[in-house]
Each structure stands twice: as C-alpha cells, then as structure tokens.
Design a binder for these strands. Structure first.
Lengths: 363, 363
DNA sequence: CTGTTAGCGCATTCAG
DNA sequence: CTGAATGCGCTAACAG
C-alpha cells in the first residue's frame, strides 16, 4: 500500500492515539478519533441499529480491534434504559434443588445476552427484602425469586415498581406477581395413594416447618389422599435435625399406632429420616415403607432405592426466567400475574415396597 | 409545631417536590431540594465520609425517607472507582460441589457489602473467556473463578489488567494469579495407602477426563502410593457416562488381573461406578472395595456407606474470596500470586472394608 | 461545615 | 448517512 503525505500524518495521529490509550481503558471517543469519525458513528456501528457506509464501518472496526476497545457496560446501563442484567434471589445455593433452579436461570439469561446478579436470602424475609432493594438500586431489568416464608415476605409490587418480577417454586401474597409452581398437592396425593395401594393404612407425613409454602401444599395433598381413603392423618412437623427426627421416630415407631409408611416433605427431611432409619436399624420397606418429595442425584443408590416425587427444577427455572424475559422485552407491567403449574413425576423405586429392578416413572 | 409564613412556603415547596418525584425515581438532587441543601451534602450524609451538622444531617435523612430515595448504584459505580460487585465463574451450578463453593463466595461477598455476578462456563474455555470479558466490561472489582481446562484456558493477567483475580479448585497457567487449592495429591495418596492397608494389591483409579487439573493431581497421588508400595498402576480414564463405566467395569472385573478395589476421581464418576456396581450385582466391599474423592450429602446412605476424601468446599470458596477482597480493598496488583493449599480429610465409612458403625474422620 | 463546578462514557436528541 | 451538543446521577476537587 502506498503512503502519501496525507496518510503519513494520519499515521502519526494514529500512533498518538495508540500510545495515549495505552494506560487507561480506551473509550468510544478514542476509537472515534483513531477512526477519524464521530463518536456517534462508532456507537452506531457497534449497536448496529442505524446503517452506516461499509467503508466507515470497516475503519471503526479496525480502530476497535487496534485499541482492543470494549464498551463500558456500566456507562451504557447508566445512560440507557436497560442494564442487561437480571437478579436472582434464592434461599440457599448449597441446596441441590435450588442450585439446579439457579442453573436454569443463568442459562436462560445467557441465551438472552443477560448477566445475572445472584444472592441468597437464607429463608429470611428481611435479608430477602434488603437484597431485592439492592438489586433494584443496581437497576436490574427484572428479578426471579424463590420467595422466603409466605406470611412474612415483604416482596410486593409496590417495592418493585415497574421492574418485572417472577416468583417460582413458591408464590408471594401479591397476586399481580407472576409465579411458576409445581404440582405439590397433586403429586403428594398421588404418591400417598400409591402407598395406600401397597396396603398401608397408617402413613405419616414427616415434614419441615409449616411456614414454608411447599411443605404445606404437600401436606394438603397428603391430607386429601388420607381423607379420601378414610384414613387418619398423622403429621410430624419441624423435623429440622437428624437428632430430633431420630428421637421422634424412635418414639413413634414403637408406639401403639406406629406408622407402617412414611412420606417426607423434601430432601432435607429425607436425609434426616434416612439417618434415623439407619440408627434405629429399621428395614425398608418391610419394617417401614418410605417415599419422599423431591428426587435427588443419589436416590437411586440409597438402600433401598428411594421412591420419590420428582420436580422439574430445570424446567421451572427455565419457565420462570422465560416469563421474566417476556415482560422485560415487552416492557409491560401486568395488572394480573400469570400462574403456571408444572407437572411432577412419580419415580417408583423400591423403598415404597415396589419390586421393580429399575425405576418406573409415572407421569 | 408552629407554622410561620416561611415554613408555609417551604411546605409548599416540599409538596411540589414530593409530587414531582412521584413518577420517576427520586434522585439525589430531589433529596437536596427537599432538604434545602446541596447535592454534595446529601452525598456526604449518605456516605458518612465527611462530618456534617447533626441538624442538616437530620433534614437530609427526613427527605430521604419521605422520597424513599435510594442511591442509583449504577451511577455511583459509573462515577467512582468501585462497582461494589465481584464476578464468579464456575463450570456448573448443578454440581453440588461447585454450588457449595458458590455459596461460600456469595456469603463472603455479602459480608463485604458486595454483589455477585455469577456465570457458568460449562468447562468451555471460550465461554469462560467471553464471560470474563463481559464481567470486565461491567467493571467488576474482582473475579473469583474455577478455571476450565488448564491447557486451554485463556485466563491471563493480560486479560484482566488491574482487576484482581483469584482462581480456586484448579490453577491457571499464569503464575501471577492467586490460587486456592486442596490437597488433591496428598489426599489421594493417603486413601490409596488405606486401601493397601486393607490388603488390596490391585487397585484401579477410575476417572474422568485427563484434561482436568484435579483429576490429574489425584492421579499423581494414586501413582505415588502405588509406586511406593511396589504395586502396578491401573488407571481407567474418560468414564463419562454410566453406560460406558458399566461396560468397562464389566470387562475389567472379570478379567485376569481384575482390581479388588476402586478409587474414583470425583463424585460424578462415583455415581457412575455406583450405578455399574448395582447393575453388575457386585458386593461392596467383598467383591470390590471402593472409595471416592469428594464427599457428598448422601455418601453416608449409599449401600454400603462410602469412604471418601472430603474436600473443604466452603472453606475453599471462603479463602479464595477473602484473598480477593484483600486485593480489592488494598488495590494492589501482585507481581507474584499466592498459592494456598487447604487440607483434606479422609472419611472412613464402610465401602473400603472398614467395620466402623459411624464414620471415622482422619485429618 | 457546605455549596458550586465539572465530568465519568455513552446514546438520545437535533442539525447538517 | 454523519456529527455536535446535551445530560443521565453521582462524587472528586475546589472554593467559600
């Protein structure tokens, strides 16, 4: 390529630009100067919203490459209407079920080119509230949340203003907020019916705190199944440690109306009961049949393999986030919230008394 | 309280301010006007850096409360030096080990008043690179990352510039980057020695991809233990599905030099092997003894309970994040990286051949 | 102790 | 099709 006098002075300017931008992050005007255009042209080339000549676009691209320019997303978000980020609030990250939900959320967000601000509430409504506010202050474009205790949550439409919100796994009292749930009640009912079909009459529901929506919704399913079969209900709440669970179970199992089957409210309680059963030397399913709500990675390898209600964690996170992006991209604030309920599956293994060698899944 | 003429007009102004700010988010100057002070006074009251009179501070606080003013964190981050956010990049969120690590990171971040941008790399160096760039563009104050494949990672000091970075669980090639690891090699060596003490001579290492640092580091420990005992090594790599693992194991177990004990490289492979063992109808530990690297929630409840090397996931996440905040708050860019190695524990249950009723932990 | 000025990097005006 | 001016909300630097 020939170098004319004009080109030479241009090259000189280029050198200046390159050295100038060496120590601080290059900005859009650095790129503009180097390319010999206005900042708006750069902006337009990068955003691709308005058409520019192929030649100038090329020069901009070259300059961007030379300076290794990266747009400052902070400035962009500050200036514009969107931060291209969403918030995710879940109770705990160490719970595999919630972690799976979170995975779905981050995956969908990436598909939309969005970043995710994550935080945990620890099931504490105050922490949850504070974290939601923090996210709002960061101008997230939307929030997906697994709300903490229904009765105490401070998550309302008023708090969020125009920012779209989707709750999942558990609802919030505010009916204008979208929510994605699973069939907690119906699923539990079906599995209790299955236990009854195995001939059990005294079936106990072993559960965590009543203040959690899912635990209660499942309790309802248990009640209905028992009631419909003309059986007496037997609920054991607040099993929040292996010690406590063992103590309670020890007492109940040797009592006069000892249950012959157990249904646990969630994986944490399943774990406690598994521990109690081992300590008490009970044989499953002969001494005691056993089923749990919520499948987990190694349910197939406990002894015996565990019959469970499987919740579609990934689908739920995916559905919630998709719903959020519907709102985000359409920019509408709903006066009435959606309520999506996803189906669950019953996974029959052997702890319920079934003899299958491999799991049988009922939809 | 009496209302003078001056107060009345002030109240009028207040009303105006309140209605004006009703439909858009109140800004600092809204607060300043309502409180009858300058924006800087508001800024100072809120940040608490410079002393202001108790009386004026009070008026500012009142105005803030009336308008429900919340500082725009985006503007603050844009203007200032810090975004008060850190980035977290992990391979997967659905892996309980990584989820635990993530939990520690978010916890420590909150202790420092920081938000966390989370993303998953899926073990793909390109995704990891793109996500890191994205975070840099968002001006995070630091990044904690569980890097993907060592040989292919594009994470270098040059990429991050002055932004502090801490790698954990696995190192990166760039020695200037801080890293927090666990005793992969030493831990594996100890557990293999334990298997040898049980009388095993043919011990196989069953593993995932060799391109993962941890898998290799553990392999090294296995090799050393075997070599020191004068035994022949027997490594089975790329067990990346239950089917494949079953196929390989079936063949090996009936072969002439069939291993009498197995060591798995991580929980995923443990799961595959557990499945294979069940399908092949093998009795643990009599037909085949078994130990795994990485403890998990229900290792106690598999049949038989599993002997494992327990890694301190929470401590590792905590250490990495603390290290990051040391850098972030001190604002120094190190020329030489720290390398912290955390100890592991051996949890003896029954799959190795031990007869303990409860787990015995060796430090 | 407090107010004024200025500008961070970008994209939405509005003119050419 | 392209460029110049303007201001988003906040805080460092400088007055007063």
């Amino acid at each position: 390529m020939k170098v004319s006098a004009g080109n030479r002075s241009q090259n000189r300017a280029k050198q200046d630009e390159l050295t100038r931008a060496a120590h601080r992050k290059p900005t859009m005007s650095d790129v503009a100067r180097l390319a010999g255009v206005g900042t708006m042209t750069v902006s337009r080339v990068l955003s691709g919203t308005v058409h520019v000549t192929a030649a100038t676009a090329q020069r901009v691209h070259t300059a961007v490459a030379q300076l290794k320019y990266r747009p400052n997303e902070l400035a962009r978000a500050f200036r514009g209407q969107h931060s291209h980020s969403i918030g995710l609030i879940i109770p705990y990250l160490y719970d595999p079920f919630f972690a799976n939900c979170a995975h779905a959320v981050t995956t969908v967000a990436r598909e939309h080119g969005y970043s995710v601000l994550i935080t945990t509430s620890g099931e504490d409504p105050e922490t949850e509230f504070a974290e939601a506010e923090q996210m709002l202050q960061r101008h997230v474009d939307g929030i997906v949340v697994i709300p903490s205790r229904f009765k105490h949550t401070r998550l309302t439409r008023a708090l969020f203003g125009r920012t779209p919100v989707v709750a999942f796994d558990r609802p919030v009292p505010d009916p204008t907020i979208d929510v994605v749930l699973v069939q907690n009640t119906a699923g539990t009912r079906r599995i209790v019916e299955h236990l009854i079909e195995h001939g059990h009459r005294r079936i106990a529901y072993v559960a965590l705190s009543r203040s959690l929506f899912t635990i209660n919704a499942r309790f309802l399913g248990y009640r209905r199944a028992m009631h419909d079969a003309g059986l007496e209900e037997d609920a054991i709440f607040d099993c929040d440690s292996e010690e406590k669970t063992t103590r309670i179970l020890k007492e109940r199992v040797s009592g006069p109306d000892a249950p012959t089957a157990l249904l646990t409210s969630n994986t944490l309680v399943t774990r406690f009961v598994l521990g109690a059963i081992a300590r008490l030397g009970l044989k499953v399913p002969n001494d005691l049949a056993f089923a749990g709500f919520d499948d987990f990675d190694l349910a197939e390898f406990t002894s015996p393999p565990l019959t469970v209600v499987r919740q579609p964690a990934l689908e739920m996170g995916r559905a919630a986030t998709s719903l959020l992006f519907d709102r985000v991209t359409r920019g509408e604030t709903p006066s009435t919230g959606n309520r999506i309920v996803l189906p669950v599956e019953i996974v029959l293994r052997r702890s319920c008394g079934c003899k299958h060698h491999n799991a049988v899944v009922i939809h």
